[in-house]
Write a protein that binds this DNA or RNA. Structure first.
Lengths: 174, 174
DNA sequence: TACACTATGTAATATCATAACATGTCAAGG
DNA sequence: CCTTGACATGTTATGATATTACATAGTGTA
């Protein structure tokens, strides 16, 4: 991580994000932890966390919120990496395939996964006011979906489950 | 409907689509029924099913599968309606807002809703082989999602639930 | 008719994503 | 050590999806 750890700041949109969700926490440590876990995981799989890929993962972790591919690209370009879309998309695709990042289709954006390696059917909660994206445990939802699909003879392989609504903070404010 | 009713044809991708899902049925009648229900519903709400809107709904019903906005636009343009994107997007947005159509985010596409007026948290099953989109009953999935979200203090307002996998026919073929 | 309201048409542009190909990097086998 | 093959990155170009802004036209009502 290049960003120093910092305490919870209600003005920071990232402060209600994945895994630690809508509660105070230390960005720096959760990000470094995640990055370390990610590296170990990829080594175990025999694939490489190259500079671009690593930097993209760091960018997502630092932002601690959903970023568009072009947001990521701009930051990469500013640091001397290639400045064409495929540079960002390739790294994001790689991270997504390996479960280190998730795509939020509703936002055309990507977030770092906060618990890489663990099996999880991700469920995303998107606050329509502050745009914060939280990753909720999705086992029960996934099971319900699998069951509804099975009733129709359909076999689920992947699922996109995204809820739009109000996070606790914005609910209070409203 | 401008398309004549026809019996189930395994070669027709629409023949495994919303509501009647993955089983044989009569396209013409399910489409005309749906259109009639839609009209009644809008009259009751005091909004207008104008020519463009009606035609877009018909196009979706005829296609009986997910169509991109530009697919819809091309058909409209061929029939003398405007040929700029807003023409299609406005009609599609209107239909979506009134529950007459749904947006499939994974496909950047739209499908006609087969049971307008009924409250339903739509769940979509997308076959990765034949691209067919089916709408499954989503009450249980929605409830699970609402509950998982509530545990984190998040209030769900809308949800996107889309599963990618294999439909019965393609499962057998594989 | 005049007015307000809604809907449609059109131009221009923004945003998101991929195909195709050239170049560079690196480690394993000769 | 050097070749070779696999993988990764850089770059050009283009395609696909979506929106903003403004002009025009229809609709119902006072």
């Amino acid at each position: 991580m290049t960003e120093a750890p910092h305490a919870h700041d209600p003005a920071c949109p990232g402060c209600a994000a994945p895994d630690l969700a809508f509660s105070a926490h230390d960005h720096g440590s959760c990000a470094t932890d995640t990055l370390a876990r990610a590296e170990a995981l990829l080594v175990a799989r025999g694939v490489r966390l190259t500079p671009v890929r690593k930097r993209v993962l760091e960018i997502l972790l630092e932002a601690h919120q959903a970023l568009g591919a072009y947001d990521v690209l701009n930051r990469l370009a500013a640091e001397g990496f290639g400045n064409q879309p495929p540079v960002a998309y390739r790294a994001l695709d790689f991270l997504t395939e390996h479960g280190l990042a998730h795509r939020i289709r509703r936002l055309n954006a990507f977030v770092a996964c906060m618990h890489p390696g663990e099996v999880h059917a991700p469920v995303f909660l998107i606050c329509r006011v502050c745009k914060t994206v939280a990753e909720a445990p999705g086992a029960a939802v996934g099971a319900a979906l699998g069951s509804a699909a099975a009733d129709m003879g359909f076999a689920v392989e992947r699922a996109t489950i995204e809820a739009l609504g109000l996070c606790p903070a914005c609910k209070v404010a409203a």
